[in-house]
Structure formats: structure tokens, C-alpha cells
């Protein structure tokens, strides 16, 4: 049988599953007649297997908690370790509580960035869950608006207002209390237009050092579009299955009303 010569690149592609099926048969046939190349292929395969044997155990190691805290930054690596080593040394003399503090100390040095991700993800999830509700879309209805605002303001620790969007065709249905990602309280107001399209406004407390932001737009993984921004004490996320332009129109109206 005569085959097109097999290149080095094709041998790797063969091993790595990057070769198209048609050509794979060619390579197999060619390898049968070329023991030297076959030995190389065997080596490449063994190499990949050895890498897995050597390093796969890392996959099952528990993830260090620091990796899950985006807003906490440690000292630069080398400095951090020196500080940690020093603090461990001290801590071994002074015991429990101090050890705890000393261990924490190098970790909480500066807050770099506020991550809006959890807010949009949470807002989009809450939107998907509650906007789909037929019988219980809200916890407290707009007919009890005064009570709703008092209750949520109490839980949020600061006065919360639900913007009015009737002029844009959306009426307030009511709201609900939600857990915020940081363990505090958040809330959600729901609006509906004449054709039954629902929009939710998710509000949570902004961190003290959080700066005001412009509008950001994001389509979350569940397909819900979210505009989010931070204004004074609160972070806002407006969610809906709406085109960007229409959602932006609503976001602007809300921003204008709430910043009065």
C-alpha cells in the first residue's frame, strides 16, 4: 500500500486526537510498517499517561479558601510567605487567638477590586426563578407598598425605594427579601408590562469603599440580560429577557429617579 508520507506533526495530532478520521487510518497503516515511528507514538502516549499519573491528584486537593475570596489580596508571594513564616513563629509562642489573628494578618492587606459578578449572577438567578412564578412572584405585593418599603429598608439597614416605571409601561408588582452573596440582605422588586414581560430590580448594599460606576451590561449564563451599576450605598442590577436598548432605557429611568 502506498500512503502519503506521515509528517511529525501528524504523529502528534494522531496521539492527541487532532487528526481527522480518514487520515487516522492512513497513519495506523503506516505505523505498522514503521517501528521507529510507532515507538515514538508509544512514547508520546506513555508521556501523557505519566503526566496524569503524576499530577491528577492535584485535582482532588481541597481548594484553598483564599482562592474563593476575590476581594482579599495577600502580600506579593515571597513577602507574604516571609510574613507568614514570621507570624507562625510568633504565634507558636502566644497561642490560639493570636495565632488566628497572625495567620489572618498577611491575608487581609488591601481590598483591590469589587467584583460585580456575584451581584449580576445572583440577580439573574433570582430573576429567572421568581419572574417565572405565576402565583407567588413577589413576597409582598404593591398593594402594601408602604409596608414593603419599611420592611425591606429595615432589613437592608438603609432606606430602600422602589422606582416607579408606569410612564415606561411597567407597573410595580411588589418585592421580596433575598440573601446577598456577602451574607447580608438584598431585595428584589418586580415589574410587569401590559404584555406580561417582567423586569426585576435587584438591590444590595454596596461595600463602604465601593465607587460609583457607570452602567455595565452583561448577559448571564442563563440568558438573562443584566444592567448593573453602583450608586452611593447600593448596588443595582436590573434583569430581564429584553433587548439591551430597552433594558438600558429602563435602567436610565431608574437611575434618574433613585439619584434624586
Amino acid at each position: 500500500m502506498i500512503h502519503r508520507p506521515v509528517s511529525d506533526g501528524e504523529l502528534h495530532a494522531f496521539v492527541d486526537g487532532e487528526l481527522e478520521a480518514v487520515r487516522r487510518a492512513d497513519v495506523e497503516a503506516w505505523l505498522a510498517d514503521n517501528p521507529e515511528a510507532a515507538a515514538r507514538v508509544t512514547f508520546y502516549r506513555q508521556l501523557n499517561e505519566a503526566l496524569h499519573r503524576r499530577y491528577d491528584h492535584v485535582l482532588s486537593e481541597p481548594v484553598p479558601p483564599a482562592m474563593l475570596h476575590p476581594s482579599r489580596r495577600r502580600l506579593p508571594a515571597t513577602m507574604g510567605r516571609a510574613a507568614l513564616a514570621a507570624s507562625l513563629l510568633v504565634a507558636s509562642f502566644v497561642g490560639g487567638w493570636f495565632a488566628n489573628q497572625a495567620l489572618r494578618a498577611p491575608q487581609i492587606v488591601e481590598r483591590v477590586v469589587q467584583v460585580p459578578v456575584p451581584m449580576t449572577a445572583q440577580a439573574a438567578m433570582a430573576h429567572a426563578i421568581y419572574a417565572a412564578e405565576v402565583r407567588h412572584p413577589v413576597e409582598v405585593g404593591a398593594d402594601e407598598e408602604a409596608h414593603l418599603m419599611r420592611w425591606l429598608s429595615n432589613r437592608m439597614g438603609r432606606e430602600v425605594k422602589a422606582p416607579h416605571l408606569q410612564t415606561l409601561g411597567y407597573r410595580l408588582m411588589g418585592g421580596r427579601l433575598l440573601p446577598a452573596a456577602d451574607g447580608g440582605a438584598a431585595c428584589q422588586f418586580m415589574y410587569e408590562n401590559a404584555s406580561g414581560t417582567r423586569v426585576t430590580l435587584f438591590i444590595r448594599n454596596a461595600d463602604a469603599d465601593q465607587k460609583e460606576t457607570a452602567f455595565h451590561f452583561k448577559v448571564e449564563s442563563n440568558g438573562v440580560s443584566v444592567f448593573y451599576w453602583i450608586d452611593r450605598h447600593f448596588g443595582y442590577a436590573l434583569s430581564a429577557n429584553l433587548p439591551r436598548e430597552e433594558l438600558l432605557r429602563l435602567a436610565r429611568a431608574i437611575y434618574d429617579q433613585l439619584s434624586l
Binding site: 492535584v58 485535582l59 482532588s60 486537593e61 481548594v63 482562592m67 474563593l68 475570596h69 476575590p70 476581594s71 482579599r72 469589587q114 467584583v115 459578578v117 456575584p118 449572577a121 445572583q122 452573596a181 456577602d182 451574607g183 461595600d207 449564563s221
Partner: peptide, 15 residues
């Protein structure tokens, strides 16, 4: 403490 929600897509990539 700001902790990333467990369903965040980045988390699956950490290992």
C-alpha cells in the same frame, strides 16, 4: 466577606 458563589463558572476551573 465576599465569597464567590459556588456555581460561579470559574470555580470549576480552579482544580
Amino acid at each position: 466577606m465576599t465569597r464567590v458563589p459556588p456555581e460561579h463558572p470559574i470555580i470549576a476551573q480552579i482544580p
